[in-house]
Amino acid sequence: MANVALIGGTGMVGSHILTCLLSNPAISRVDTISRRTPNAAAEAPQSKLTTFVSGDTATWASQLQALTPTPGIFISAFATTRGAAGGFDNQYKIEHGLNVELARTAQQAGTKVYVLISSANANKASNIAYSRMKGEIEEDVKALGFERTVILRPGLISGTREESRPLEAGIRFIAGWAGKVHSGLKDGWAQDADAIAKAAVNASLKALEGDVPEGKDKVWIIEGREILQLSKE
């Protein structure tokens, strides 16, 4: 049985991750840290779910550090947007800063497995600011030295967002249409949010048990169709 801490549990992928964690019999306890109460807690409180809600993200690290027992798995689906943050510089400070701070806190507390929902094309050397930020988050958490680090790099995340992103919604519509015609037209570049979530939870449990692909014992990067394969296990 595994204990899991989750940040980003109110977002598009994170909310599905939380649902998967709560329904998985291999998970004994879930602790979420978020700015608002996750829907899973508000709609159907679970005995194994504990939520910490605070708009002051400066308190999140101390809350994570205080969790008892220490979570064996820490999952981050936390992200923000340039618009919500008020510009890219603030987006970087929030998304990179909080992800790395909490990953470091978890590692120091004794968490064994770290799981990050990143993005396709994440690369610290990229000329694209967003891809560079994602790449730098990946490199900085890998450097912390968790027993195992799992990084999922989905392409376009298809599904329904609570907030309005008209351009992205149009592309998601195309992805949905393509998937209905034939899965092969979609799977390589777009994955459903619930599939990403299932893959993240399945991969986290495999990593905790040491059941990872050969050559990926320390860092396991999961992309595209491999995400979909893991989601079905």
Score class of each variant (00 low, 15 high):
1 M>H: 13
1 M>P: 14
2 A>H: 10
3 N>K: 09
5 A>R: 00
5 A>P: 01
13 V>E: 02
16 H>M: 04
18 L>W: 00
18 L>H: 05
18 L>K: 00
19 T>A: 11
23 S>L: 08
27 I>Y: 03
32 T>W: 02
32 T>A: 05
32 T>R: 02
37 T>W: 00
37 T>I: 11
38 P>K: 01
38 P>T: 01
44 A>M: 03
45 P>M: 12
46 Q>W: 01
48 K>S: 07
50 T>R: 10
52 F>W: 05
52 F>D: 06
53 V>Y: 07
53 V>K: 06
53 V>N: 09
54 S>H: 04
54 S>Y: 08
55 G>V: 02
57 T>W: 08
58 A>I: 05
58 A>N: 15
59 T>V: 03
61 A>P: 01
64 L>A: 03
66 A>K: 04
66 A>E: 10
66 A>F: 01
69 P>E: 06
70 T>A: 12
73 I>A: 05
75 I>N: 10
80 T>N: 04
83 G>T: 13
85 A>K: 08
85 A>M: 07
88 F>E: 05
89 D>N: 14
99 N>W: 01
100 V>Q: 08
102 L>A: 03
103 A>S: 15
106 A>Q: 09
107 Q>Y: 02
107 Q>R: 15
109 A>H: 07
110 G>A: 09
111 T>A: 10
116 L>I: 06
119 S>Y: 12
120 A>S: 08
122 A>R: 09
122 A>F: 07
122 A>S: 15
122 A>L: 10
122 A>M: 07
123 N>G: 07
125 A>D: 15
125 A>K: 14
128 I>R: 08
130 Y>D: 06
132 R>K: 15
133 M>H: 10
134 K>V: 10
134 K>L: 11
135 G>E: 08
139 E>F: 08
141 V>K: 12
144 L>Q: 13
146 F>Y: 13
147 E>A: 11
149 T>N: 14
149 T>V: 15
150 V>Q: 05
151 I>G: 02
154 P>F: 06
156 L>G: 03
157 I>A: 05
158 S>I: 03
158 S>V: 03
162 E>K: 15
163 E>W: 01
163 E>V: 04
164 S>Q: 12
167 L>F: 07
169 A>P: 02
169 A>D: 14
172 R>Q: 12
172 R>I: 15
175 A>C: 11
176 G>F: 01
176 G>N: 14
176 G>W: 01
177 W>L: 15
180 K>D: 03
180 K>M: 07
181 V>S: 13
181 V>M: 14
181 V>G: 12
181 V>Q: 12
182 H>T: 08
183 S>A: 11
189 W>Q: 07
193 A>R: 06
194 D>M: 00
195 A>T: 12
195 A>P: 00
196 I>R: 02
197 A>D: 06
197 A>N: 03
200 A>Y: 04
205 L>F: 10
208 L>F: 08
210 G>I: 08
210 G>N: 11
215 G>L: 13
217 D>F: 05
217 D>E: 15
219 V>N: 12
221 I>R: 11
225 R>W: 01
226 E>S: 07
226 E>H: 09
230 L>P: 01
